[in-house]
Simulated scan of single mutants.
Amino acid sequence: MKIAFYGSSLLSAYWNGAATYYRGLLRALAGRGYDITFYEPDVYGRQQNRDIDPPDWCKVVVYDGTVNALRMVAADAGRADIVVKASGVGFEDDLLLEAVLANARLEALKIFWDVDAPATLAEIHAAPDHPLRKALKRLDLILTYGGGDPVVSAYRSVGARDCLPVYNALDPETHHPVPREPRFAADLGFLGNRLPDREARVEHFFLEPAACLPAQRFLLGGSGWEDKPLPSNISYIGHVSTRDHNAFNVSAKAVLNVSRTSMAENGFSPATRVFEAAGAGACLITDSWEGIELFLKPQDEVLIARDGRDVRDILVELTQAKASEIGRRARARVLAEHTYGHRAERVDALFRSRLEARVEVAE
Rank of each mutant, 00 (worst) to 15 (best):
M1G: 14
Y6D: 05
G7Q: 03
S9I: 04
L11C: 05
G17S: 15
G17R: 04
A19N: 10
L29C: 06
A30Q: 05
Y34M: 03
I36L: 11
T37M: 07
E40W: 02
V43Q: 10
V43R: 12
Q47D: 05
Q48S: 14
R50M: 14
D51I: 06
I52D: 01
I52L: 09
D53M: 12
P54F: 10
P55T: 07
D56E: 12
G65K: 12
G65A: 15
T66A: 06
V67Y: 07
N68K: 14
A69N: 04
M72G: 01
V73D: 02
A75Q: 13
D76W: 03
G78N: 08
R79A: 15
A86W: 02
A86N: 13
G88P: 01
F91Q: 01
D93V: 00
L96Q: 02
A99S: 13
L106E: 15
L106I: 12
E107L: 13
E107W: 12
W113M: 09
V115K: 00
D116H: 11
P118Y: 04
A122Q: 13
A127W: 01
D129F: 11
L132D: 02
R133M: 11
K134H: 13
A135D: 00
A135I: 10
A135H: 06
L141K: 03
I142G: 01
L143Q: 03
G147E: 07
G148S: 08
G148K: 05
D149A: 15
G159F: 08
P165N: 05
V166A: 09
A169R: 03
L170E: 00
E173I: 03
F184K: 01
D187V: 07
F190E: 03
L191G: 07
G192Y: 08
P196G: 10
A200R: 13
A200C: 03
V202P: 00
E203Q: 14
C212T: 06
A215T: 15
R217F: 01
L219S: 01
G221D: 01
G221F: 01
P229L: 05
P229K: 04
G238K: 02
H239V: 12
S241E: 12
V250T: 06
A254H: 00
A254Q: 09
V255R: 07
L256D: 00
L256Q: 02
M263I: 09
N266D: 11
G267Y: 03
S269A: 14
V274G: 00
A278M: 06
S288F: 06
G291A: 04
E293V: 10
E293G: 08
E293F: 02
L294Y: 13
D300E: 15
V302D: 09
A305Q: 04
A305H: 08
V311E: 00
L318Y: 04
T319I: 07
A323E: 08
S324H: 12
R328T: 12
L335Q: 08
L335V: 08
H342R: 09
A344S: 09
E345R: 14
E345Q: 15
A349I: 06
E356C: 10
R358K: 15
A362W: 14
E363G: 12
